[in-house]
Design a binder for these strands. Structure first.
Ligand code: FES
Ligand code: FES
Lengths: 150, 150
DNA sequence: TTTATACTTGACAAGAATAGTAGGGTATGG
DNA sequence: CCATACCCTACTATTCTTGTCAAGTATAAA
């Protein structure tokens, strides 16, 4: 019951992009260096987010990635769903037909109700936090550090 | 972000035991047959639950397993924590020292707040449902089926 | 006492998923 | 034209999952 690094790396990269939303394209290598993530691996993740309409890319020198929407419009759930496949805790209750696996028991299984409640709770949390929230939080922390240092 | 079959099989087995809580020991093979789970595999799961004080065993003919506490006192969270290791969605926020992995970023990582909220939501759901709830539900369904069949 | 039943334990193994690497190709600003 | 940076596919090492297998122990019943 663990999220893969795809989601955790991807979210951290997206927060980086949210923090520099108004500063043009940011390169993969910049993010990879700052977050200490393999460049090649991060390439795959950001590319997947681009294909799903979450990022736009600029090629050539000074190129990089930019959020395709305002940070407010991208939730953690959006990112996790793209990178993880879905957010369901068991295949029985995923709503993505592609991932749904045979579950003959679904009509009688007493556990199903629990998994459905769990899936709802997970989605509620993940969809309630967007990149603007996280960027603001990150900004506040930087400001706080500055205050302490003087 | 999927629970393994350890949790899902284990929970189903425990609900079976809850349904027959007053009928003495139930054998692994009975449960395995009813739930269509490999006997050897289920052995491992139930034994782990026994070591953690969730089950008691009776050896020899007519032996089997019995819940070590009243169904009301065993939650889905208890079972998942034993069989899955813990319920945290990322290693960064597990409260089990054994599983906690190096996360140098934990003091600065902006994502951590999300994972903590998520971990809380997951625990809230899993700890809010106990075996008595599930057994009652299973019993109701049987009754309902009977009503229809006449 | 013998025997069949059923739990106990540890080792092993196939398959899938994860977490990357590697290496080419394409677009573009300078 | 060339250095930069995205684009895309394939491959690999490691770990986790999902079991199987074999040998042993305890006990109720015949
Ligand atoms: S086995 Fe699929 S819902 Fe229980
Ligand atoms: S990397 Fe551990 S909390 Fe973000």
């Amino acid at each position: 019951m663990k999220l893969s690094t795809k989601s955790t790396y991807g979210l951290r990269a997206m927060v980086n992009l949210a923090l520099k939303y108004d500063e043009g394209a940011i390169s993969i290598s910049d993010i990879a260096k700052k977050e200490d993530i393999s460049v090649s691996y991060l390439e795959q993740l950001l590319n997947r987010l681009r294909h799903k309409g979450m990022l736009e890319s600029v090629r050539g020198p000074n190129g990089g990635y930019v959020l395709a929407k305002r940070p407010k419009k991208i939730t953690v759930g959006d990112i996790v769903r793209v990178l993880e496949g879905d957010t369901a805790p068991v295949y029985c209750v995923t709503n993505q037909a592609r991932l749904k696996r045979s579950c003959r028991r679904s009509t009688t299984c007493v556990a199903k109700g629990v998994w459905e409640k769990l899936a709802d709770a997970i989605d509620r949390v993940l969809d309630s936090v967007n990149l603007e929230d996280l960027a603001r939080q990150a900004g506040d922390e930087v400001g706080h550090e500055k205050d302490i240092s003087r």
